[in-house]
């Protein structure tokens, strides 16, 4: 099977800095591909190059089999974009925004009405069709943008920080719509987000840092690589506790984050009871959890995604 997006040796060099340093990856048809990294990692630059908005310094990009630098219009027809920034015309109605989009993308006249009804139904905006966009809430505008991005039946939908600035409830709803889309329409999705819990819905994620891709895999695989479980504990005397841990525990990674001791172990079940007996200091807080993408991110980049960015 041919990949929906193929990136080979992609580079972007500005006057003095290399924003993107020769990256390569594939996005398979029908998958949700999460693209993660702190601000300044080169994510936006990469997306802009994939979307025909920025000319690469070198390297090749194929989308849906079309060359991004030679067949721009074919590529543009194949993709839908949901930007971080609002790109609706708020002075126009939802209906007008959708109609203009159909015309920009040469959607055949006889299917326009049907498609507009269809996409509005997907995002539950049928009743607001003839209202001006400026009267919409932030969540409604986002949904309308998603609806608009689907009008021309793109093969790939790019979602660049689609939930920034939305309240948690709206965010949760939006992900429901996105998962529904993947299930019902089989659209390939290319997703960037700062919220790593949201990236968990990805089939695969790529982690980018300092212009390079440092890991591409399924979220579960990446988390497995870190080892089985993470035990977080606080005690009355962390220093003493650490000393005892180092004496008693051999094959575990121990780190301290903000007054909490993190211990990575292959399996917590066998480890925990004997471990707790070995400690002489009372434990005030104990939490056993599976690694999250944030742990993965930290392991690869040495920092939290939140610390690295300015959002």
């Amino acid at each position: 099977m041919q990949a929906m997006i193929e990136v080979r040796g992609l580079t972007k060099t500005y006057k003095e800095t290399d924003a993107v340093k020769g990256i390569s990856f594939d996005v398979e048809e029908g998958e949700i591909f999460g693209f993660l990294g702190p601000n300044g990692a080169g994510k936006s630059t990469t997306i802009n190059m994939i979307c025909t908005m920025l000319k690469p310094t070198s390297g090749d990009i194929l989308i849906n089999g079309y060359d991004v630098s030679k067949e721009k219009n074919r590529v543009r027809e194949s993709i839908g974009l949901i930007f971080q920034q609002n790109t609706l015309d708020t002075k126009l109605t939802a209906n007008e925004n959708l109609k203009f989009h159909c015309r920009f993308y040469n959607v055949p006249k006889n299917v326009r009405e049907e498609r507009i009804q269809e996409v509005l139904a997907i995002v539950d905006l049928t009743e607001s069709r003839y209202s001006k966009v400026e009267t919409f809430s932030g969540g409604m505008q986002r949904r309308l943008e998603i609806a608009r991005g689907l009008l021309h039946y793109p093969r790939v939908l790019f979602l660049d920080e689609p939930t920034v600035g939305l309240d948690p409830q709206t965010r949760a709803h939006l992900w429901e719509y996105i998962l529904k889309l993947k299930k019902e329409q089989g659209i390939t999705m290319f997703l960037t987000t700062h919220y790593l819990d949201e990236a968990e819905i990805s089939d695969r994620v790529a982690i980018m840092d300092k212009g390079q891709i440092i890991a591409v895999d399924r979220p579960s695989k990446l988390k497995d690589q870190l080892g089985g479980d993470i035990i977080e504990l606080s005690t009355n005397d962390n220093d003493q506790a650490l000393k005892e841990i180092h004496e008693n525990v051999q094959d575990a990674e121990v780190t301290v984050h903000e007054g909490t001791i993190h211990i990575k172990v292959a399996s917590s079940d066998a480890f925990i009871s004997s471990f707790l007996k070995s400690l002489s200091i009372p434990v005030t807080k104990l939490n056993i959890r599976k690694p999250t993408l944030n742990d993965v991110f930290m392991a690869f980049t040495g920092r939290n995604i939140g610390e690295a960015g300015d959002i």
Partner: peptide, 11 residues
């Protein structure tokens, strides 16, 4: 207002 992006990424 961002609308130019909508136009520029279209065919």
């Amino acid at each position: 207002f961002g609308y130019m992006k909508e136009i520029l990424v279209s065919p």
